[in-house]
Simulated scan of single mutants.
Amino acid sequence: MSKHLTREVIADQANVVAIPAIIEVAQPVQVDRSFELPSGLYVATAACYLAFLAILATSFSSPGLIIPMAIIVTLIAGFFGVPAAWTRMAPGSAKRAMSPGQFSRGGISTLTGRLSAGEATVQMLILPVLIVLWALAIVTIAALI
């Protein structure tokens, strides 16, 4: 339940202190915008999603699918284009994405431990590749029926 407090009651119990000294402004924090993985993995992921659309669009082509497919392609371009632009927003940043050579030599550190380049590639591309295989399965089933 609430209780009305008068100014006198608040003034009796309040801790009045002097104005704090101005604190020196800290240096800006370096933000890591690199996502660390080589850009080729992101390109491969986007290519798998676009391959899924291409397989279905060519197999089930219809004039009514032109606009939905264009919207989906635009969304995929945005989903990969915005983060790519975001990584270039801090030109003075020392952090860059790993080169393919660095990635193949050292792998990548994750929250659950270190992954080799092959393990990280499989972990990142397993779903996009399965989606492409799913599109091929759909087309195969539709052709056989």
Rank of each mutant, 00 (worst) to 15 (best):
G40M: 07
G78Q: 09
V139N: 01
I138P: 02
V43K: 07
A117K: 02
E24W: 03
S93E: 02
S93Q: 06
V122L: 15
V9K: 12
A90Y: 10
M1Q: 14
W134E: 04
P83A: 08
I76T: 06
G113D: 03
L53K: 00
F60L: 09
S59M: 05
A44V: 03
L75G: 12
P100G: 03
Y49I: 02
A85S: 07
N15V: 15
P38Q: 04
L56G: 00
G40W: 08
L115R: 08
N15E: 10
F35Y: 13
F52G: 00
D12N: 12
E24C: 01
I10N: 07
A77N: 07
A135P: 01
A46M: 03
A90P: 00
L130N: 08
T6D: 14
N15Q: 12
F35H: 12
F80Q: 00
T112S: 15
E119V: 05
E119S: 14
S61W: 15
S116K: 01
R114Q: 12
A57S: 09
A57F: 07
T87V: 11
H4S: 09
V9N: 06
L53P: 00
V73Q: 05
V139A: 08
I71E: 08
V43A: 15
G64W: 14
I10E: 07
P128Q: 02
V43G: 10
L136I: 11
P100I: 08
V139L: 03
W86R: 11
V129S: 03
S34N: 05
S39K: 12
V16A: 08
G78A: 11
M89G: 10
L5K: 06
I141T: 08
P20M: 04
F80S: 02
R96I: 01
A11E: 05
A84Y: 15
H4R: 15
E8P: 03
G113T: 03
C48R: 06
V31Y: 09
W86P: 04
R105Q: 06
W134G: 07
L41C: 01
A137S: 07
L5E: 11
I126H: 09
A143R: 13
G81I: 01
G107D: 06
L127D: 04
P63R: 12
V132D: 06
I55Y: 05
M98A: 04
I67Y: 11
F60N: 01
E8L: 03
Q102P: 01
C48S: 14
F79K: 01
P83I: 00
D32R: 08
F80L: 00
S62A: 14
I55S: 01
V43L: 15
I19K: 15
H4M: 09
A54H: 04
A142P: 01
V29N: 07
I66F: 14
L115D: 02
K3I: 02
A46K: 02
A77C: 11
F103G: 05
I22S: 09
I67Q: 12
L115N: 03
P68W: 10
P28M: 02
P38K: 03
S39H: 11
W86A: 13
V129T: 00
A70W: 05
M89L: 15
A142D: 13
L136M: 11
I141F: 06
I145F: 14
E36F: 02
V16S: 05
I55M: 09
L127G: 00
W86F: 11
S109V: 12
A54E: 08
I10L: 15
L65V: 12
D12K: 15
S104W: 13
I66C: 07
L125N: 01
A84Q: 14
T140F: 14
